[in-house]
Computed example of a mutant assay.
Amino acid sequence: MKRFPNPERMRGVSLVTAIFLLVVLAGLAVAMVTLATSQQTSSALDLQGTRAYLAARAGAEWGVYQVTRANGACATSTFPLPADSTLARMKVTVVCTRTLDTVSKLQRYTVLSTACNTPGSGACPSPTNSIDYVQRVVHVEFSEPGQP
Results as ranks from 00 to 15, higher is better:
K2S: 12
R3H: 13
P7R: 07
R11K: 11
V13L: 15
S14G: 09
S14W: 03
S14F: 10
V16G: 05
T17Y: 01
F20Y: 05
L21K: 00
V23A: 12
V24K: 02
A26M: 13
G27D: 07
A31D: 08
M32S: 15
T34M: 14
L35Q: 10
T41S: 10
L45P: 01
D46W: 01
Q48K: 10
G49Y: 00
T50I: 10
R51N: 09
A52E: 01
A52W: 01
R57I: 01
A58T: 15
A60Q: 05
W62V: 09
W62Y: 14
Y65D: 14
V67Q: 00
R69I: 13
A70W: 09
N71Q: 12
N71C: 04
N71F: 05
C74Q: 08
S77D: 13
T78D: 06
T78Y: 06
P80W: 01
L81D: 07
P82N: 10
A83M: 05
D84H: 03
R89I: 10
V92W: 01
T93G: 01
V94L: 07
C96E: 04
R98Y: 01
K105M: 12
V111A: 07
T114Y: 02
T114I: 15
T118H: 10
S126G: 08
Q135R: 15
R136D: 08
R136A: 14
V140S: 11
Q147S: 14
